[in-house]
Amino acid sequence: MKKALHRMWKDRILYLILAPTILYFVVFRVWPMINMRLAFYDYNARGPWTFAGLKYFKLVFSSPAFGDILKNTLIISFMKYVLLFPFFVIFAIVLNELRLKRFRQYVQVVSYLPHFLSWVVIAGIWMSFLGPSPTDALNEILGWFGVAPVSLLTSKGAIRWVLFLCEGWRSLGWDSIIFFTTILNISPDLYEAAKMDGANRWNIIRYVILPALVIPMTTVFILNLGFFMSAGFDQVYNFTNNAVNSVIDILDTYINRVGIENAQYSIGTAVSLIKGVVGVVLVLMTHVTSKKLTGEGVW
């Protein structure tokens, strides 16, 4: 104990260098966490908040909209983080199989770019691409095949798939980098050994490349579960419109609408609290399960 204290005193400059970062987190993260007690209180702009017990949680759970919002969140997250997931791995494997190196670099340069565009810009691009007019890009293409113009952005049946495709469009390149570099780092000896055993390309993918990808896949999957309750707020917030809002209204858009736009602070906070707790439990559960099964977790 005394030794540790002595060491800390000796390193006092180090703690001083770390202090601004800690201060930042205390003010902008810990303080908001303490503010979350607002979920159990009635807000008062001038005086102290008055205790309200579980009033706001009851309000949230009894509102008919909440069930739909929770369902939308889980469906959209499932599409983005489970259904889309294999495509990143496939994309990395396919890139690795490409024999024309120039072409591969071209694909990389183009496919990494959308990740860096803001969601506002991406919404602008997709609105232009999927616009309802017969001259807008998608409808023009459909026209070649004699299909009548569609308006996917205002179609309840299509909008979730639009979000799914758009998420893939934005992340396909960037999110596959981790898998691609893992493949590049596979020891050449493993390939040699596989070839000696007479393995063809498919065997190599199946028995050399895929096993190497298990570790990054586990990590990414667990981290994705951390986003499961968010379902990608920025995308939904910029793609939504009156025609489709009921099928893509998610927890975070609800929090924004009720908590910020309508200034119902306690309800907004209550939903954030539910969302935060469930999110952390999801990550911890998967982390522990994965540690038991594969010996790999996130940390």
Partner: peptide
């Protein structure tokens, strides 16, 4: 890690 995993949400942040 806790700071990374747990997002207090926009309303409590707005209060701060």
């Amino acid at each position: 890690i806790i700071m990374m995993l747990f997002d207090p949400g926009i309303v409590p942040e707005y209060m701060v």
